[in-house]
Design a protein around this nucleic acid. Structure first.
Lengths: 212, 212
DNA sequence: GTAATAGTGTCTATTAGACACTATTCG
DNA sequence: CGAATAGTGTCTAATAGACACTATTAC
């Protein structure tokens, strides 16, 4: 194929993917980001890999997370392509940043010795553009959570209004009023009651809700 | 450099850029997208090119627009990477979609015989993912215009409230109330009066405003 | 004058924010 | 019982939507 050969005469970049995988801490009130041990050098980084032929970017992100962190079942979304020439001293490398969200329970099977969770607002020292990626990831979630009830599933299918509000507070980084939040969610019909009651709390049992 | 050689042993994709360049029609009430004649085959497409080594994606978009449409001075923003294997029969090609906005006056120097402007809501038949790119471009503008006064400069530095409202109507695709729009813009201090008055209209001359 | 466009006063319905009160559970 | 958490009634301030009226120009 002549056209194909013509394309291949020009230099092409390597394409990498990196992902900020966000989850909630044990209190359900703070956002954490998953970091993995670097292979080449000491320290931590966001999970990433190089794109293989015949693979989508989302597939590459899923492969990186399975191989490097032992985490499955993510739905990564693209955020941005980092393209500065010279950003990677290994050569011409573009990196496509992604965000993905997991429930904390879903990280229980992760490789404990090779992964750690860091609060998004107190990031460690990360290589390349990884600190920027976390910022973009949080901004992306902030936009998505503004008009919907936990659209990315930090919580399970059912939850109390307090759990939902704490998740939204973690994402937005601001305090949210208890009564205005509950009324807003119900008025806009973003959630509906399951009829069940929560168990194990200290005070009056909360009603359980699901997304509509 | 051993690492560099290691990277180059794996297949790498060609990386293309495509841009939806949006502007206003003569009435200032409809969004148009710039299309260029295809080089390889008859018909029209969004302007695009292949990324060269040592160049950023935004630079590649600017080069494509200068070469193919004769348009300068754009600030393209990334929208999405189209990555489906097999989307381009010339080989393994990723395409990074961009959006850019220009004032209509700025297109006067464009190559007339090689370019045309099409309403975004009545797109022609376009190759690859170009119809999707226009949709993403309009969605991106819609989000950006929700909280600001013409942030991307469809209008010049000064404008009347009617011009601004028509631009926002073109972007949002909805009718906007004259009085609520004016009060909202002024209350939120997104614009301020220049003290000047518009010329050439039919009725009472409008006040000119600028972005704050 | 009329037609056209711009600017603004005012009423109402909706909503967020604030506060307070009641409800239900544990220990 | 008190402590803790959940749910809701109600007041107020801010805001969008709707309508109407006035203002200023061209003709």
């Amino acid at each position: 194929m002549a056209e194909r050969r013509a394309l291949e005469r020009y230099p092409r970049p390597s394409v990498a993917v990196d992902a900020a995988v966000l989850t909630l801490d044990a209190s359900g009130r703070s956002l954490l980001v998953l970091e993995v041990r670097r292979a080449e050098s000491p320290g931590w980084a966001l999970p990433g890999t190089f794109l293989h032929e015949g693979e989508t970017l989302a597939d590459a992100v899923r492969r990186a997370l399975l191989d490097k962190a032992g985490v499955e079942g993510l739905a990564p979304r693209q955020l941005h392509v980092f393209d500065a020439p010279g950003r990677d001293d290994r050569g011409w490398v573009l990196s496509v940043a992604h965000v993905a969200v997991v429930r904390p329970e879903h990280l229980e099977g992760a490789f404990r010795d090779r992964t750690r969770l860091t609060p998004v607002d107190r990031p460690g020292r990360l290589p390349w553009d990884h600190a920027d990626i976390i910022g973009l990831a949080v901004d992306d979630l902030r936009e998505r959570y503004r008009e919907k009830a936990d659209p990315d599933g930090l919580l399970g299918d059912t939850f109390t209004l307090s759990e939902l509000r704490h998740a939204h507070e973690a994402v937005s980084g601001r305090r949210i009023l208890r009564d205005a939040f509950a009324r807003g969610m119900l008025r806009r019909e973003l959630i509906e009651s399951t009829g069940e009651a929560a168990e194990g709390g200290r005070g009056r049992p909360a009603e359980m809700f699901r997304r509509t």
